[in-house]
Amino acid sequence: MTVTESRTFADLIEDLLPQTQCTKCGYPDCRAYAEAIARDEASYNQCPPGGAEGVARLAKLLGKPVIPLNLDHGVERARPVAFIDENLCIGCTLCMQACPVDAIVGAPKQMHTMVAELCTGCDLCVPPCPVDCIEMIPVTGDKTGWDAWSQPQADAARMRHDRRRARLAAEREAAEARAAAKRAAAVSASSPVPAAPAAGPAPTEATVETAAAPVADAEARKRAIIQAALERARAKKAENAAQGLGPRNTTHISAETQAQIDEAEARRRRLGMTDDSSESVPTQDVDQPKKS
């Protein structure tokens, strides 16, 4: 039996977009822009990365005249790639959270780097960087728009964007499930337990100690496991520092920058994406506002 894929008008429009996911069109991603065009709620000349050729492609599909690119959304330009200055990077992960195609490699308190082959030049990692360590560098010379991009690159970027969106949704669902389980456990623990009817002689001191022994052993094992995990985390951090893999600009952080980092870490904790072994930037290194 042959299965025929049903494609909507928005699907056909999305196929003609460069999939940079830059939001310059005024929509959160290329798919949202395609759906807006299909509903006749957005014009087909709002995509700077697609440039003039992108407008012409959409005009042909829509059966409409070719019109100039709307410069309110940006200009057609050579494709840039983000470059992260590792001497300034503080490992805050704000750029990683902003990248729509997972083109940045790094971890909290660790050096970040851009995978140039995966970067779409969307610029979204630049504004959230608290230390201005990201620069967009043109890499296609005089080639702009679709001349600076290709359909295979667009298809790969769309796949990475879709995978990232699915991963984030799964992480949110998992975090919500964990939070619900904790709430249920708290309610259960706070509920009064009916007293069991007295039967037999009162327990002796030796009996109580024998019953408490397994609980004490379980707590001791738990503390040992936590301590071992902390030691491994400290050893790994020391190893990374010895290899020069840690962030190099972690002293004299401004109060505003520290606030951004703290907010990002709090968000990761709410999502269950960090552990108690992570250490924040020392507060004593934070620059305090100067008194007049």
Rank of each mutant, 00 (worst) to 15 (best):
R160D: 00
V187Y: 07
A241D: 15
I261V: 15
Q110K: 06
V81T: 13
C89Q: 05
V3Y: 06
C95K: 01
A56L: 04
V215W: 12
A206V: 08
A154F: 00
Q243E: 14
Q153H: 05
E256G: 13
C99S: 01
A189V: 07
Q260N: 13
G121V: 00
K236Q: 14
D275A: 06
V66D: 07
T204C: 03
G106A: 14
A32E: 15
C47M: 02
V131L: 15
E239I: 03
S278L: 15
A59H: 01
P49Q: 02
T113F: 07
R164L: 13
V3M: 11
P130N: 11
A185I: 13
M159P: 00
I90Y: 02
A179Q: 10
D217A: 10
G74I: 08
P49S: 06
K236E: 15
E76P: 01
R172T: 04
K222L: 15
K24E: 13
C99K: 00
G246K: 04
P130G: 09
P128V: 05
T93Q: 08
V101R: 00
E176D: 05
A36R: 02
A242F: 05
Q97F: 04
L168A: 06
R221G: 02
P28Q: 11
L58D: 01
R178Q: 14
N70L: 05
A56T: 02
A185F: 14
M1N: 10
C25W: 04
R267F: 03
L71P: 03
K64C: 05
A233T: 10
D162G: 00
E176F: 04
A98C: 10
S254A: 08
V281R: 09
C92Y: 01
K236N: 14
S150H: 01
V55I: 06
I104V: 09
V286Q: 07
R267N: 11
P108E: 10
A175E: 02
E35V: 14
E53S: 10
I261R: 01
W146E: 02
D217S: 07
D275S: 14
K109Q: 12
P18L: 04
I225M: 13
Q258D: 09
R178E: 13
L94I: 03
L69R: 10
D15M: 05
R267E: 06
M159H: 06
A98D: 05
A34T: 08
S277I: 07
E265Y: 12
C95L: 07
A177G: 09
A264P: 01
D11I: 07
R221L: 04
Q153K: 09
C125H: 00
I226H: 12
V66K: 04
Q243G: 11
C92I: 04
L12S: 13
V139P: 04
T93D: 14
E41W: 07
A199P: 03
S188T: 15
Q260P: 02
D275H: 11
A211M: 06
I137C: 05
I134V: 13
S6L: 15
P138M: 03
C95D: 08
T120S: 06
C22Y: 04
A78I: 01
T144L: 03
T93G: 05
A186N: 09
E171V: 13
A202V: 11
A156F: 00
G63C: 06
G63S: 08
D276Y: 07
A198S: 12
